[in-house]
Nucleic acid binder design. Structure first.
Lengths: 297, 297
DNA sequence: CTTGGCGATAAAATTAATTAATTCTTCATA
DNA sequence: TATGAAGAATTAATTAATTTTATCGCCAAG
């Protein structure tokens, strides 16, 4: 059906300008600059070979040709919007994603509202896993956000974030009696440990700090508890980067030094349900990658 | 009216694919590659968070969601196309353009069909001028395509093509008894002259040919007659580039050498009617510039 | 087994859209 | 009249979106 459609984006711009009779206001509605809309209108007029607006003292007026276009275009766009919204509102998709609780609480959850706003038809169900994803119970999960080194045989994974570690402590500790200005001051403080492979030893080595007994201080079996202890001012913990994001954001923890060390570990997306309906998964993974991009810049 | 419209180009691609139930056929209709349409569909599905087609062994099938979208989208695009065509077919614009007859015949006319095809609502009326455009009678011309050096005081002109000169002769002459292989062979031939400032002397100087009496041979008062004489095999003329374009195209004349000399003269667009309805003028001048671009590449 | 048709994909290239920074116009007001 | 404010137009540059090219994989028909 060889229709001879004009450029649809120009038409959209035209329709908005015609409703407002103002390029500036149309630009606001379309969330672009006034210049962008002006360009679109000019291009459309050139392509049609007809002026659509009469430029006037105060504002614009539609020409006869412009007049004739407004109503059909408005109707057409309403139609498109209605059909789209029907699907976006009625067809709620459920996307089941598994991940570590620490990742959910420390990084993902606070961002998820943005996803809901952008994809009102996709409902994310978070399944919290303890350590490694249990393949045997994988039947009802679409996507796994997995922590590790990416070396899982026969698993098609895609990295989306790298882990980094750096010291964190409560802001009160910084203002306390014991100074924490130089790296050497660390020796005066309690070091809090978690039970991960890369820890204080590696960070101190990387930072070039010598003569500190990196093994002293209490250890916790969950990173979460270590961070809590740090937030309570009990000492200095090694924060892990996506995980401490929220605590830093809220000011519960601060970064006394700006030296951070990649641990070689990271977060990976693993597609579990390889059957149909890839679109909801793509929608989520694209959004996730974009959030990471923003987070890291 | 903050509608939440999806990307309109994807929607157009979707509508075409849905009608054909084939990406390849839709791509043909849209005059793009199959890959382009595939990308658009994927992007739309991702953005909607819903699969619109079920990929099948043979061809595609619409999903429930896809089904729901087709009819409204088809209607919407029909509406847009109808409104557009109404203007394009009913509102015929007349654009009056003046130019030298030699330019019209030698370059513009054969291309004009392309303009009519692209802008069915704009009717070009060509007014042939003899030498210089007569400003006193300018009232009923929108645009002047003027030949010269561009130095017209108080005239807002924009160059769109440069003139170049080079020898041309009839193809029969090349096959004749007198050879025309090297520049020196020119001395064996009749040189045909027109009455322009830059001519055989300048071209021969530029080509580094010495010892040829550049003034011998008959002269004609109109370039057109000079070229006609050359086409009849009466000798070798200096062709001027936009003007001999058609004769070269049709094979009436050929270029024995590949040395061409810019004369410093050229063709300029001069806006005469500065009042309203710039769009038809822009449509024509944009098209003209594009034709020149294609011509010169 | 091959072959051919069709869709998906990745990377690169090309186009189109957008912005930032001005400029131009047209009043309204000092 | 100046002067300034508000909105549209413009230009050049940048950024984003689209398209292509080339290739792969799948499946069905020979």
């Amino acid at each position: 059906m060889g229709r001879n459609l004009p450029n649809l984006n120009s038409i959209r711009a035209f329709e908005a300008v015609a409703r407002h009779l103002s390029i500036t206001r149309a630009a606001k509605e379309l969330n672009v600059t006034q210049a962008a809309v002006s360009h679109q209108i000019k291009a459309l007029e050139t392509r049609m070979g007809v002026m659509l607006f009469r430029r006037h003292n105060k504002g614009l007026l539609l020409t006869k040709e412009g007049q004739a276009m407004v109503q059909p275009m408005t109707n057409a766009f309403d139609m498109i919007a209605d059909a789209t919204n029907l699907i976006l509102n009625n067809e709620v998709q459920i996307l089941k994603v598994s991940m570590l609780g620490s990742f959910a609480a420390g990084w993902l959850m606070p961002r998820l509202a943005g996803f809901y706003a952008e994809y009102p038809n996709i409902d994310i169900r978070i399944l919290v896993t303890s350590k490694e994803f249990d393949f045997l119970k994988a039947g009802d999960v679409d996507l796994d956000l997995r922590y590790g080194d990416g070396k899982w045989p026969h698993v098609d994974s895609q990295k989306f974030m790298s882990e980094e570690i750096f010291p964190v402590c409560s802001p009160a500790l910084l203002k306390g009696d014991i100074p924490l200005n130089s790296l050497d001051d660390l020796s005066q403080h309690v070091l809090l440990h978690d039970h991960k492979d890369i820890g204080w030893k590696e960070w101190l080595d990387d930072a070039g700090v010598k003569g500190i007994d990196y093994s002293r201080g209490p250890g916790f079996f969950q990173s979460h508890l270590t961070l809590q202890a740090a937030a309570l001012g009990h000492g200095i913990a090694l924060g892990r980067m996506p995980l401490v994001s929220e605590s830093l954001q809220r000011g519960e923890l601060v970064k006394p030094f700006d030296i951070s060390l990649p641990t070689g570990m990271g977060y990976y997306m693993v597609n579990i349900d390889t059957t149909s309906d890839k679109s909801k998964i793509r929608a989520f993974t694209n959004w996730l990658k974009e959030e990471v991009r923003i987070f890291e810049e």
